Deep mutational scan, measured.
Amino acid sequence: EADPRLIESLSQMLSMGFSDEGGWLTRLLQTKNYDIGAALDTIQY
């Protein structure tokens, strides 16, 4: 079963217009401990 923190973070990022095609966003959020800010910083640079 998916981590509730992942579901919450992923749904927030999907609502911002990101896609999780191929699961890349799920993996990114997992490596950033479900921190949306850290994930966005990684995507920006």
Rank of each mutant, 00 (worst) to 15 (best):
E1R: 12
E1A: 14
E1S: 13
E1M: 13
A2W: 12
A2N: 13
A2H: 12
A2I: 13
A2F: 12
A2L: 13
A2Y: 12
A2P: 13
D3T: 07
D3A: 05
D3I: 06
D3H: 09
D3S: 08
D3L: 06
D3N: 11
P4E: 11
P4T: 12
P4G: 10
P4L: 10
P4D: 10
P4V: 10
P4H: 12
P4A: 12
P4M: 10
R5Y: 07
R5G: 06
R5L: 09
R5S: 06
L6V: 05
L6F: 07
L6Q: 05
L6A: 08
L6G: 03
L6W: 06
L6K: 04
L6T: 03
L6N: 03
I7M: 14
I7D: 09
I7K: 13
I7E: 11
I7F: 11
E8C: 09
E8W: 10
E8M: 11
E8D: 11
E8T: 11
E8Q: 12
E8G: 09
E8F: 10
S9I: 07
S9E: 02
S9L: 07
S9T: 11
L10V: 07
L10K: 03
L10S: 00
L10H: 02
L10G: 01
S11R: 14
S11I: 10
S11A: 13
S11V: 10
S11L: 13
S11K: 13
S11C: 13
S11P: 03
S11G: 12
S11T: 11
S11H: 12
Q12G: 06
Q12M: 12
Q12D: 07
Q12S: 10
Q12W: 09
Q12E: 12
Q12N: 09
Q12F: 13
M13W: 02
M13G: 02
M13P: 00
M13K: 00
M13F: 07
M13Y: 01
M13I: 06
M13R: 00
L14R: 11
L14I: 13
L14W: 05
L14E: 09
L14G: 06
L14P: 01
L14C: 08
S15Q: 12
S15H: 11
S15D: 13
S15W: 05
S15N: 13
S15K: 13
S15V: 11
M16V: 04
M16D: 03
M16T: 03
M16H: 06
M16C: 09
M16R: 07
G17S: 03
G17M: 04
G17N: 03
G17L: 04
G17A: 03
G17T: 02
G17V: 01
G17R: 00
F18N: 00
F18V: 03
F18W: 09
F18K: 00
F18C: 06
F18D: 01
F18G: 01
F18M: 05
S19T: 14
D20H: 00
D20L: 01
D20C: 04
E21F: 09
E21A: 10
E21Y: 08
E21S: 09
E21C: 14
E21D: 12
E21T: 11
G22K: 05
G22N: 12
G22W: 06
G22E: 09
G22H: 08
G22S: 09
G23Y: 07
G23S: 05
G23Q: 07
G23H: 08
G23T: 03
W24Q: 06
W24G: 03
W24P: 00
W24K: 05
W24I: 05
W24H: 05
L25I: 07
L25K: 00
L25H: 00
L25Y: 00
L25N: 00
L25P: 00
L25S: 00
T26V: 05
T26N: 03
T26H: 04
T26Y: 03
T26G: 07
R27V: 08
R27H: 10
R27K: 12
R27G: 07
R27A: 11
R27T: 08
L28P: 01
L28T: 02
L28F: 03
L28R: 00
L28G: 00
L28S: 01
L28V: 07
L28A: 02
L28W: 02
L28M: 05
L29P: 01
L29H: 01
L29V: 03
L29N: 00
L29M: 04
Q30R: 10
Q30G: 07
Q30Y: 08
Q30V: 15
Q30M: 14
Q30T: 12
T31V: 12
T31D: 15
T31F: 11
T31R: 14
K32H: 14
K32R: 07
K32M: 13
K32P: 02
K32C: 15
K32E: 09
K32F: 10
N33H: 10
N33M: 10
N33K: 09
N33T: 05
N33D: 10
N33P: 02
Y34W: 06
Y34R: 01
Y34G: 05
Y34F: 11
Y34S: 04
Y34K: 03
Y34I: 02
D35Y: 03
D35F: 04
D35C: 07
D35M: 04
I36T: 07
I36Y: 04
I36H: 03
I36M: 08
I36Q: 03
I36R: 02
G37N: 15
G37S: 12
G37W: 13
G37M: 15
G37A: 14
G37C: 14
A38G: 06
A38T: 07
A38R: 07
A38W: 05
A38E: 10
A38Q: 09
A38Y: 05
A38L: 11
A39M: 04
A39N: 01
A39L: 05
A39V: 14
A39Q: 01
A39R: 00
A39G: 02
L40R: 04
L40E: 02
L40N: 02
L40Q: 04
L40W: 07
L40C: 07
L40M: 09
D41W: 09
D41C: 15
D41A: 14
D41N: 12
T42S: 13
T42N: 08
T42G: 07
T42H: 15
T42P: 00
T42D: 15
T42L: 10
I43T: 02
I43V: 05
I43M: 07
I43P: 04
I43R: 01
I43Y: 04
Q44N: 12
Q44V: 09
Q44C: 12
Q44D: 14
Y45V: 15
Y45S: 15
Y45I: 15
Y45H: 15
Y45F: 14
Y45G: 15
